[in-house]
Design a protein around this nucleic acid. Structure first.
Lengths: 142, 142
DNA sequence: TATTGTTATACTCTATAACTATA
DNA sequence: TATAGTTATAGAGTATAACAATA
């Protein structure tokens, strides 16, 4: 088990703390999503389609910062499993929508994410989660 | 450039925010450390040896959560470059120390890390960095 | 000329299994 | 029996380059 690292200057560094916290939280989330045969990436893709039905895979890639070349096997996998459907919107792009099964899976995804949040938010003092989320958002957005 | 992602439930999620913020900060840090021919991993290794001279590579791996098999090429690379020296402490393990050149490089690493911190801490409201660091530490330690 | 989807490919990180030599 | 260092290897995730079809 990863010991706390005791005293090193690393513990005062933003990049180090971000990396360790992210790795820990994402590892827990990955285990939970594995039970649904999903990765954090494919789960986030389903959430985006659920919020924006008809979106193209290139657009999803731009939102999630996933290269469109890497969206291809992800989308193909989810479609093969009957979780999403494609409909041509013009000659080169498809609008993606969740199937009923896809929407049902999104419900289960949300449950796993909530369990993940509960696990780690409980390690913070009351009312600190919102401030943490705001700080993190400021860090990478704009 | 990664757009902010507008309105998706993702923006309210701890795991998502951690992942995006960590990726952004680490990408910037990686670019800065590239100028020193280092990765965030090898740079953190040098910082640990600087703080704990005589430490073994397995022990560094435990502190940083890097598998000892993956420490091997990293340590070999740094030694080849004359940044660290090994001294047998018993028949199976070596104590690692930085050379003069290694210590000099650590000074430059700290400068790059400070520039990285400045870049991203400036996006927070005054006095929020400490709270953010404390929250992140609570997230993965213990 | 730019964009979508696609293929192929490479590179980095990380993980596991196995071996040796020591303890 | 457990540990340090090592080798080899496999799997993610991510990156680039190129192409066809379409806008």
């Amino acid at each position: 088990m990863a010991r706390s690292g005791q005293s090193t200057e690393l513990n005062g560094l933003l990049g180090y703390q971000l990396r360790r916290a992210s790795a820990m939280v994402m590892a827990d989330l990955a285990v939970r999503l594995e039970t649904l045969d999903l990765t954090p990436g494919s789960a986030s893709m389903l959430l985006v389609i659920s919020a924006k039905p008809g979106i193209t895979q290139s657009e999803i890639g731009r939102i999630l910062s996933i290269k469109r070349a890497n969206m291809v096997p992800m989308a193909a996998n989810l479609q093969t499993r009957g979780l999403l459907s494609r409909k041509r919107v013009d000659g080169r792009s498809h609008g993606l929508k969740l199937t009923g099964e896809g929407e049902a899976l999104v419900t289960r995804i949300r449950r796993q994410i909530k369990a993940n949040e509960k696990e780690f938010a409980s390690r913070l003092e009351a009312g600190q989660l919102g401030k943490l989320l705001a700080g993190l958002a400021a860090m990478w957005q704009q």
